[in-house]
Computed example of a mutant assay.
Amino acid sequence: MRYAISSNAYTRFSLNEAIERIHNCGYSALEILADHPHISPLDITPQEVKQVTRLLEQKGMSVSNMNANTAVSVYPTIHHIGETVFEPSLCNRIEEVRLQRIRYTERCIDLAAEWGASCISVTSGKCLAGNPPDQAYLLLVESLTQMLPYAEKRNIRIGIEYEPGLLIENANEVQRVIAEFNHPLLGINLDLGHTEVLGEPLAGTIQRFGEKIVNIHLEDIRGRKHYHLVPGEGDINFEEVLEALKSIHYDNFVTFEIYSYPDDPDGAAKRALAYMSNYTISC
């Protein structure tokens, strides 16, 4: 099993510092947060891109995924959209806002190709006031329709991540979007913590999506409360998870998303890797 950790655990450090620290914690791969404070995809310079490339090469680090789930770094340029985490979103009713997020996501596709990641992850965004779910869904489909040809040029997979409270918030809804396109580059960034929060079957959900899984986000959950814990500190049956991944011959990364420990990200990173090393199941 190939483990990585998201740099969103290290938001009190620069991206270069995060790469150094993650490497020192024993990882050979990380997911890069495509947002503040690590990078601003629309503003990053060619020189900054090359600096990250050189550091990754020096450390022998791979990139599991470009996490384009949020776009806080561009929010100040958009006015009156009512939300600061998932906006500008791919389902926003204002065309200018959606186009901003599309450009942002396409730049993340470029960076994924530059840094050797095979995929990026995106979220749908929320249904804000004046944008009911049926309308928001059509706008999301429209946005993905515009982005997929760009992903084809770079051969980068797009994984939709469902999350409680968003337009696309469960397995049934993300499956509907994937089926809408039936495109080889469109799949799911499966966050198993979200699966647990929603009470969906872990093994069944893994087997349901199979080859459509482009990346796994892994954390622990206690009492179905949406709070990302280090594996081993909650209720998830990780042996069941790994057996299910083995059953579908999963060969991509399992990325720890444990951003809940900003005061001690190194400790959380080390505990996650140590705990999962107790399982010897190979996929």
Score class of each variant (00 low, 15 high):
4 A>L: 04
4 A>T: 03
9 A>D: 05
10 Y>R: 01
10 Y>M: 02
12 R>G: 12
15 L>N: 00
16 N>V: 10
18 A>N: 06
21 R>Y: 07
22 I>C: 09
22 I>V: 13
23 H>D: 08
32 I>R: 00
34 A>Y: 02
37 P>W: 00
37 P>G: 04
38 H>D: 00
41 P>W: 02
43 D>M: 07
46 P>Q: 05
47 Q>R: 15
47 Q>Y: 14
49 V>G: 00
50 K>C: 05
53 T>A: 09
54 R>S: 14
54 R>K: 14
56 L>K: 01
58 Q>R: 14
62 S>A: 15
65 N>Y: 01
67 N>I: 06
67 N>A: 06
68 A>D: 03
68 A>I: 03
76 P>W: 04
80 H>W: 09
87 E>H: 01
93 R>C: 06
96 E>L: 11
103 R>W: 03
104 Y>M: 02
106 E>I: 14
107 R>L: 00
107 R>N: 05
111 L>N: 00
117 A>H: 01
123 T>G: 15
125 G>N: 04
128 L>C: 04
131 N>V: 01
132 P>W: 12
134 D>V: 12
138 L>P: 07
138 L>W: 12
139 L>Q: 15
140 L>V: 12
141 V>C: 15
143 S>C: 07
143 S>H: 02
144 L>T: 10
144 L>W: 12
145 T>A: 11
145 T>E: 12
147 M>P: 08
148 L>S: 10
148 L>Y: 09
151 A>G: 10
152 E>Q: 12
155 N>R: 06
157 R>I: 06
158 I>Y: 07
164 P>G: 05
165 G>K: 08
167 L>P: 07
172 N>G: 15
172 N>L: 12
174 V>T: 03
174 V>P: 01
174 V>R: 01
175 Q>I: 06
178 I>V: 13
179 A>V: 08
180 E>H: 11
185 L>R: 15
188 I>N: 09
189 N>F: 09
190 L>Q: 02
200 E>R: 07
201 P>V: 05
207 Q>L: 08
214 V>M: 05
215 N>Q: 06
222 R>C: 12
225 K>A: 12
229 L>R: 14
230 V>I: 14
231 P>Q: 04
232 G>Y: 11
234 G>C: 04
234 G>D: 04
238 F>T: 09
242 L>M: 04
245 L>H: 05
252 N>A: 10
254 V>E: 10
254 V>A: 09
257 E>V: 07
263 D>T: 13
266 D>G: 10
276 M>E: 11
276 M>D: 05
278 N>P: 03
278 N>E: 12
280 T>F: 13
281 I>N: 10
282 S>E: 15
283 C>S: 13
